[in-house]
């Protein structure tokens, strides 16, 4: 769906995006992670033809960027760096104007399309208020509605849940999951690990312009082979397991070399109580922190600054 090779963008002397090779497959829910300033938005803009790459190539929906984009963009819904609307116009009018811009939309069905999009994002009742009176969350929903207007095959969303309350986040996530189930590929860029972890099937991690990680979430979070067990009988358990305990923290033990079922069998046979047991999996946060440095908004002094 999205394939890039050595995609690079340089702004003056600043290398914003440094030779990234993205691979987004049809049907993916792709999470594009990275701290603020790591180049996520620049990449999204390059994919949509707003910014032109310094070097490298990209294909979106099998169309070369930027020249083939005009064939691909009609099937793409996008939310780029926050929503935007004409402040003096109502949400409905904003959507109507966006729908009327560009070729290929029928005037007869416009009203129905706009209503459907407003309905989808839960703004059906607020379509008449001017956009400047909208809350941050409502604006976000309006932006999503605009992206959904054409029943896109690919949704490119930059921070889609920004400004939404927890219920809103849940609502939008359910909407996106439903659309994905119906065949829409999702490309969600975010700096919120939890959001990506809950939504995505595949992640790419960007750090200071470089793609430092790209894999299926399932692979990244595969069990480590260690088992975590909570037991009130800590001392007995440590003695019984004899050197297989790698970490001990209150009633929590991390055990190596035994499957969960074997461990439970072993402990229960000896009359030890087990509160909770599970195979250890790395969290996405751990995976990401392992491969990235400090965020770009943190500036450490460097050697030559003396």
């Amino acid at each position: 769906m999205i394939v890039t090779q050595g995609l690079t963008k340089r702004f003056g002397s600043v290398l914003a995006v440094d030779g990234i090779d993205l691979q987004v497959h049809p049907g993916d829910r792709y999470g594009f992670l990275g701290p603020n300033g790591s180049g996520k938005t620049t990449t999204v803009r390059m994919l949509l033809g707003l910014i032109f790459a310094t070097s490298g190539s990209a294909e979106v929906m099998d169309q070369p960027v930027p020249h083939g984009l005009k064939h691909a963009l009609p099937q793409i819904g996008a939310l780029i760096e926050g929503p935007a609307a004409y402040p003096h116009l109502s949400g409905r009018t904003n959507l109507t104007l966006i729908d009327a811009s560009g070729a290929g939309t029928s005037r007869r069905t416009r009203r129905a399309r706009v209503d459907a999009a407003l309905e989808q994002v839960g703004l059906a009742g607020a379509g008449r208020k001017p956009a400047k009176a909208y809350s941050l969350g409502m604006r976000q929903r309006l932006g999503l509605a605009a992206a959904l207007l054409r029943q896109p095959q690919l949704l490119v969303l930059d921070e889609p849940t920004n400004g939404l309350d927890p219920q809103g986040i849940r609502e939008i996530r359910d909407l996106l999951l439903a659309m994905n189930a119906a065949g829409t590929t999702l490309f969600v860029s975010s700096h919120l690990l939890a959001e990506v972890e809950q939504l995505c099937t595949r992640v790419g991690v960007l750090d200071r312009g470089r793609l430092v990680l790209q894999d299926d979430l399932a692979t990244l979070r595969a069990p480590t082979g260690r088992v975590i067990v909570h037991t009130p009988d800590v001392a007995a358990a440590v003695g019984l397991l004899d050197g297989r305990v790698q970490e001990r923290d209150g009633t929590r033990l991390v055990v190596r070399g035994l499957s969960a079922e074997d461990l439970v069998t072993l402990l229960v046979r000896d009359g030890l109580r087990v509160q909770e047991v599970m195979a250890e999996r790395p969290t996405l946060e751990e995976v990401v922190l392992a491969v990235t440095g400090a965020g770009s908004d943190r500036i450490d002094s460097s050697g030559d600054e003396r």
Partner: peptide, 8 residues
Amino acid sequence: MSVVSRQT
């Protein structure tokens, strides 16, 4: 320099 500089 960019991929479109020739067109530019």
